[in-house]
Structures are given as C-alpha cells and as structure tokens.
Design a protein around this nucleic acid. Sequence first.
RNA 1: GGAGAUGUGGCAGAGUGGUUUAAUGCACCGGUUUCGAAAACCGGCAUACCGCAAGGUAUCGGAGGUUCAAAUCCUCCCAUCUCCGCCA
Length: 436
Amino acid sequence: MLDIKFIRDNKNIVQEGAKKKGVDVDIEKLIMLDDQRLKELKEVEDLRSEVNRVSNDISRDQDSALKIQLIEEMRTVKEDIKEKEEKLRKTIEVWQKIMLQVPNVTSPDVPEGPDESGNVVIRSWGEKPTFDFTPKEHCEIGEKLRMIDNQTAAEVSGARFTYLKGDLVLLQFALLNFLLEILTNTETLEKIAKEKNININPKPFIPVIPPFMIKPNIYLKMARLEPKEDKYHLEIDDMYLIGSAEHTLGPMHMNQILNEKEMPIRYVGYSPAFRKEAGSYGKDTKGILRMHQFEKLEMETFCLPENSIQEQEFLVAIQEYFLQMIKLPYQVVLICTGDMGKPDFRQIDINTWMPGQNAYRETHTADLMTSFQSRRLNTRVKRTNGKIELVHMNDATICAVGRTLIAILENYQQADGTVKIPEVLKKYMNGKNFIK
RNA sequence: GGAGAUGUGGCAGAGUGGUUUAAUGCACCGGUUUCGAAAACCGGCAUACCGCAAGGUAUCGGAGGUUCAAAUCCUCCCAUCUCCGCCA
C-alpha cells in the first residue's frame, strides 16, 4: 500500500505508474474520495471533541439540574455521531478498496513494457555446455534413473505432483547445506559484496523454518493474497497454504519498531511453496518444472530505506555467486513494468540455461518492495536521531530446488544417462562423482 | 480439547467509571558541570491521523457493546504462562 499523502502529492506519477503496470485504477477519483473522507472525519472528530469537553464539565459540575440537561443534550449529539460515523465508515470502505489496488511506483531504471516481451537481459554468464549427443529433458533423465516418478504421484495426489527419490533427494539436501553455509558465513558474504563493488554490511542470514500456513488478513498485508485462484485455502480453518516462505517471513516483525543498530535484518527461510497454477493448464506439463508443491530457500531482508537498492543488488549478487559456484549458465533479467508484481519497486529475475528445453527458464527472482508491505505490516525502525520510519523490504529466491535440480540434470547429463555431480556439491554427497 | 492466571509506551510497572492531558523507574536524547568521562542536577521523550497554527481525534492484546464519560464494566475472539488431556 502506498501512503495517501504520497499519492496526493504525486498523483500523475502514481497514475502513470499504475498504467505502466497495466493496473486499472482512477487516482483522480481516489483523491476526490479522500477529500470526502477527510471532510467526514473532521465532522466526526469535532462532535467527539464536543462530547469530551462537555463530559468533563459534567464531572466537575455540582448543579444537578444543569447536569441532567447536559447529559440529555449529549445523548442527541451521540446519535448524530453514530450517523456520521456510519457514513464515514462506508466512505473508508470504498476508499480502502481502491487504496489496495494502487500498485507501487517503479524505479526509474525499470523498462516499460506490456508483458514479458518487454523484459531486458542486463547480463549473461557462463558457456552453454556442448554435447556430442542430443541432450535429454530432465524428466527423461530422472525417470530412467528412477528418481522422478510423476506417474505414481498422479495416482496418489493428482497432476503436478511428484515422488523425488534416491540421489536426487540427496542432491536437494546438498544444495540446501551448501547454500546455508554461504548465507551464514560473514566472510563469504563480504567477499561477494566486495567483488561486485556493493557497499553494504555483510551481516549473515538467520536460517528460519517458517509456518507453512497463513491467516488471510496477514496475507492481505503482505499484498500477496491476490490472485486467490492460485492459493490453496483450508476452508474450515480459514487458512491459506503459503506460496512462498516470503509470505510468513515478511510478517515476522509486524507491529514492531526495530532499532537502527540492528539493521539490516536478514533471514533465509526454507519451506514448500504451494501453488494451484490456475491459468497454466497444459503449460509445462512434463517433469517437475511447474508443480503444485515445491521446496524453496528464500531470502527475506529488512533494511534502512537508503540502503534498499544496494540490498537488492546484494541479493542478486548472492544468487549469481551460487550459480557460478555450481557452474550453471544464466541470464540476469530486468523485469519490465507490465510483467512485474504490484508491490514491486524493481524486480530482477535470473533465468538459468536448461539444455533439454533448449531455453533459459526462470529460477530466481529478486523483489524490492520499498515500504509497500511494511506500511500495512507496520514494521518500522527507530533511527539514531529518534525519528521513526517504515523499513524497506527485499525478498529473493536463493534456490527454487526443483528447477535447480532440473538445471543440474540437464547441464550435467552424460551420454550414458548418468549425471555428473557439480564439484562444490560432492562433499555433501558422500564424495560421489555421478548420479546413476 | 479442558481449567486457571495474565495482556498498559523501547523495557519494567502503577492505575477497578469522572483533575489520568496514562503515575513512577530504567533506557534513550539535549544541556549544566568536567581537561575528558562517570556521577549528580536541569530539560525532553509513545504512535497514527486532521490542522498553516493554536489545537483536535484515536489508540492501554483485537473486535463489538453499556454510559454524558471506559485502561477500568459486559460479550466474543487472539496471544502468553501454569496445570490436565491427546500426540510426533
């Protein structure tokens, strides 16, 4: 949610920004509604003020006849208040609905575009591997190795579920161990920042296993409840299954005032992500690219407003460091206005090369939300000068495990159907060289 | 799931219907003093919204209600603690 004052002061920027993101919202109408809200608020407050003042008089007054008269008068004023409050409540209801629709403004360097066709590749890394045979898709490799079983999962749970087995499971935990080591090591993080020339406090990440379910009102504050069609909802308990660890990591400091000295605060959360994938029927049906349930390691950070851009650069640098360490070719993509999320100020994705698909596919995303989420979550920081302001929040994938496994399977596949294990992961897999 | 207790500013902790505009202490900020610091003393110090300002409104876990007036009384909900039950 944006600040209504900011919207009032920058109505053209906000209106333009919404249009660029393809969000249909009438800012002029919102401001007119806000005028009405303020007018009605003033009326209610003036009446309340009168009641407060007279009530004070009543308590001091010794004359009981006058007392009775004043009490009688206040009774009618109270009815007036009730009526005006109801009017105000209705106005606020409409006002809030529109407020929730207003998207975050975007960083000046974000390209303008209608959809993913407007995204811009800002850099690439790594050589695509060459094969002296036709590279297979991950599902074929996985099925042959008896490590990916969608067939049985379909019977047990339906389409877009899988049984992951054997060395692929070990590989999953190898990735997690490898990454947790990086993210909790100050020296490694300092090195990553230095290499990319990012001036930032290399404070380590705190590992978290967050709740996998969330209440609707908290989901709303995270600006992630919509689209509801993509969420699993437990009706009886009115709870949602999270679509990302971000959803329950973000509210960890809800209604708190943090201290400037403890900033930045960085978490790395491990959780499954549950997605209905509504609207993607028939898309990516093979293998484990698009699942109803997949595990993910997610970075969520809280920082001072003036540091949030560098913080996002830092998170992307960590993502790149990871892909370089396991030697997977990738592209860094600046997401355009039409393809980015409503809460985003800037979104950077990383697409990793997948030879079996003959394409770069999305494996990472880094979202800078500025204060869009913290305003509703009420997560603030007390500056050393005593001032209190909203924190900025960043969220970024460090490893969507399923898709990373795909990339490893397809990039490291051998002619005989076995898969080489990336050098840095061997020590987490009993020193093995191959998956077979 | 059952029983009991508790929930007040950054923290601790008074406050059971009307001078409470939420006492007091700690922490924090500014000042006096000092070569400098500590101590002492003086002052400041919750948040949001409205207002050019003076000032006003709201907030004592949350949502409703009673009353001219609610931190205080009533209802429901939530969280924490203790005990019991169930359970990995």
